[in-house]
Computed example of a mutant assay.
Amino acid sequence: MSRSGVAVADESLSAFNDLKLGKKYKFILFALNDEKTEIVVKETSTDQSYDAFLEKLPENDCLYAVYDFEYEINASEGKRSKIIFFTWSPDVAPIRSKMVYASSKDALRRALNGIAVDIQGTDFSEVSYEDVLDKVSRGKA
């Protein structure tokens, strides 16, 4: 449970394990339920397009996301994959929403084992493919 008193739903952990171990999903979007008491799965997707993922990020509300990011640094090393945790908190989101998401993040983040990189996004430039690739390939976030 987080500082805000928000719990992580079992379905959120199951979906994450399906992504991580079963490669069942490309990405998962997590949101707070209507009562703001639990972090639940908002949507899962098998769409391989990073642009499809970006289109799902709301322009004016917060959410969390986990993305199985595949990339290639050079042809000799082949493809790599890292699981990325996104905290999406646009500048124009309601203050209350930003506060609850910020204080609830740790509960979800700690529950998800196997995350390689954390990315905080407040606008689309911070979560562009190029920016994410740069952070993932340097091993920094």
Rank of each mutant, 00 (worst) to 15 (best):
Y101N: 05
I73K: 04
T87P: 01
R110D: 06
N33R: 09
P94N: 04
Q48Y: 13
A111R: 09
N33H: 07
D68P: 04
E70N: 11
K79M: 02
D47G: 01
D61E: 11
I95A: 05
D131A: 12
V117F: 04
D106M: 08
K26R: 13
A116Q: 15
Y101H: 10
F124V: 08
K56M: 10
S2N: 00
G121T: 03
D68H: 06
D106T: 09
L133F: 12
V6I: 14
K56C: 05
V8E: 12
S125F: 11
K36G: 00
P58M: 07
F85T: 06
V127N: 07
R80K: 12
Y129A: 09
R3L: 15
Y71N: 00
K140R: 12
K105Y: 04
E77R: 01
K26Q: 14
Y101K: 03
V40D: 03
N74H: 14
P94Q: 00
I119D: 00
K98S: 05
V6N: 08
Y71A: 01
C62L: 07
S81P: 04
D34A: 07
A111T: 06
V8M: 13
E72H: 05
D18Q: 12
G5T: 12
G22Y: 06
N113V: 14
W88G: 08
K23W: 10
E43P: 06
S49R: 13
F16M: 12
F69E: 11
V92N: 02
E55Y: 00
A31N: 14
S14M: 05
D10F: 05
E38W: 01
V136R: 06
E70R: 14
